[in-house]
Design a protein around this nucleic acid. Sequence first.
RNA 1: GCUGGUGUAGCUCAGUGGCAGAGCAGCUGAUUCGUAAUCAGCAGGCCGUCGGUUCAAAUCCGACCACCAGCUCCA
Length: 568
Amino acid sequence: MVYRHSTSHILAQAVKRLYPEARLAIGPAIADGFYYDFDVPRTFTPEDLERIEREMEAIVAADLPFERFELPRDQALQLVRRAGEEYKAELISGLGPDEVISFYRQGEFVDLCAGPHVPSTGRIKAFKLLSVAGAYWRGDERNKMLQRIYGTSFPKASLLKDHLFRLEEAKRRDHRKLGVELDLFSVHESGPGFPFFHPKGMVLRNQLEDFWRHEHAKNGYQEIRTPIILRQELWERSGHWDHYKENMYFTSIDDENYAIKPMNCPGGILVYRSKLHSYRELPIRLGELGLVHRHELSGVLHGLMRVRCFTQDDAHIYCRPGQVEEEIVRIIDLTEYFYREIFGFDYHVELSTKPEKAMGSDEVWELATNALRGALETRGLKYKVNEGDGAFYGPKIDFHLRDCLGRTWQCGTIQVDFLMPEKFELHYIGEDGERHRPVMIHRVIYGSLERFIAILTEHFAGAFPVWLAPVQARVFPITDRHGPYAREVTETLGRAGIRVEFDGRNEKVGYKIREAQVQKIPYMLVVGDRELESGTVAVRHRAEGDLGAMTLDAFSERVLVEIHTKAR
RNA sequence: GCUGGUGUAGCUCAGUGGCAGAGCAGCUGAUUCGUAAUCAGCAGGCCGUCGGUUCAAAUCCGACCACCAGCUCCA
């Protein structure tokens, strides 16, 4: 961390030497590297980065010592103002009264910095500038956009090389690349952000949905389905019109205004409201694999991770106030079962609190937030707090999963909502015969099927567990005379419930094996004279290689066990 | 949406002002083969779109669209 931060100072020094008009913003170390933000009238090109790198080499070669000094606030301000560094002046003004204001000097270059640093610039052995991108000053889009240069550094050249190699390797797992290669899905210019699922992608998706339905039925959920287009009035009532309009698509039918749903909750509420409920029924858990559309900014679209229409594995739980925490614990348990037991993911949990543009009083938010916090503590889960990051109708717990480049994506979420029940005047009849207001919990486990499929693809690098694999086995006859037997094998396995393909093309076994390996098909079955005579199949596993001959029964038993246990 | 980059065959990519190219994939034929690529032939293009400059544009200029990285925002 210190090491990379020192490298960012060298970057800043090089930039100041080459472009004296550049104003410095901030330059922290980040995971795997560092960046520095500059305000420069011209834009940096890749050639500029090379020039800057060469200047950095010179600074490293000069082995300039890093020297620390401290100044009182007014002198510090004077120093940076004289240098025309208005961003640094703003940073100093933002520091608390008792904070020490320190600077670091290397050669002619001085920068406001808390430190620490390596002793001298010569300690930086291997570095590389990776990219340049825009970034708003203080991360606020109302502020000026600065130019951010990203880079990384390592104590040894070989470590830098390894790191760059790992970045390349990670790209091979990219779900966008694998999605094409494995023929899972596509996106087209005709519908940016609106993905098309191909037959193999649908097999995967349907497996996820079947499993989801099964587990939810076991856990006391009922399934519903609500329409995609509903009257605008509904969205005005729910608060989406006021808080979410810019993300919604609208249409009109017979001169009436309608909206395309960005969330499933208002529709689900209409189902709850369609009859009277007794306290004895609660909690009522209504699940919906609901297709929602949201207008996302064009610059954020990303394969299946970030799209403009997606299917949420949603559910809304209507319960009594006293049941909220227990319900949250149940959802956490179900989520952990999915993530940890079934898929084997690493994830982290965040708790998001009341945002600026929220509905409802602080007291209600406090209550809801405490319920979430209480459930997290009950389960002893570590979590990070995101102040002001909740939904407009309630605070939430989020489960975040990693993609191939280490970026994290929110998948599961649990949101407590006292407000929608209010807006829609929901009630149930209590023991006392009076009307009472239920609490609503919104939750998803996969999050969206699309994003989850993207994460799964990268997590397994396309080599899906057998239960999810679009094709579980492929059968190849060695020559034409083995064709009829190979077909019989294919049919028998198919009848046993295995997704199996027959590859009778006139190609060598090696060719077919290679193709099946590239497709990450878990099992390859070779049949030739030996198998034909003994009534067996020669089994090859995509990771374990040649497993030798097995009877058809033994093979199908093996695969069926893997399918049923969801072996990874 | 903002900053920067990219856009040529299904995929990966060459081609920098003068007839649009390669490998893989596809199709046809030959080969009948034992665990990651058999050989030969054929076909495949609105060079992202629209406009401009030029005798001539994939190539230069402009606008737009899409994609990539990052920022802001979110499942």
